[in-house]
Amino acid sequence: MEKNLDINALVDKVMERIAEEMNDSAPKEDNDHFVSEESSEEMQEEIAIRTSNIPNPKWEDGVTEIIESTPARIAVWRAGTRPLTKTMLKLRIDHAAAVDSVYGEVDDKLLDEFSFIRIETMYENNEEYLKRPDKGRIITEDGIAVLKEECIAKAQVQIVVSDGLSANAVNANLRDVYPSLLDSLEINQLKTGTPLFVKGGRVACMDHIGEILQPEVLVILIGERPGLLTSESMSAYMCYRPRKGIVESNRTVISNIHKVGTSPLEAGAHIGTILKKMLEQKTSGVKLNI
């Protein structure tokens, strides 16, 4: 397994760090009203497992220090050689949430609210989607007809949203990331095409859509493979003149968009800026100077 991260991922991590530093330095009040009730509960749960279960630690003060240094599930203690019950159940609930997200559905009302036109890939069903990534890159005949008849062609900016590997990611972030992206495009005086939702999409379905609609730049907001820390992480893949046969290094990506990662509001604004640079420089991916 190649666990080493590629250059895009590297850029992401750096951006993630910058975003974190920005979050850290932002006044607390500014962040508070973005935190929904649900997420405060989650945070409390998070805090609950972050307490040590070690009954008589050799160095009491050390316990807090190590717990604060990592999100890893440490200082958890044991029953014999097995984990304590609550620690074990916490792992299982986090996994259940992640799995739910893979098999979940994007909320119809949400898509209606922003007037997204719906199309599908050849994914057929969830099982086939997971087994055949190639099918998630091709739009169905029906979808192609919709693109040709109902959508604006040759737009400056084409916005696409897809469930990808996490419907939760779309449900959790779209309300923040999409309006802030539209605002940012308006500020930059960029015109958008028809907003599209692709069910069963893989990142490269943008190439097929690009082939048909021929926008100047395209951004796809897509659910990432869920982790246990969060199942709500979304990525934005952007490409200048996307078409079939494009190589991965031609895409620009912002990943880790969720409420405790890169904030969805900031991400929306950031995407707008990057798209503008793509249009100016007429390129994307590794050749783009950000």
Partner: peptide, 25 residues
């Protein structure tokens, strides 16, 4: 061996420190 089998960097689950200790027993 990963803390509670959850690798918080690679985002996947493996086997835990507890699991290895248990298999040995």
């Amino acid at each position: 061996g990963v803390p509670m089998a959850d690798d918080c960097m690679l985002n996947y689950q493996s086997t835990s420190y507890h699991d290895i200790a248990t298999l040995r027993e």
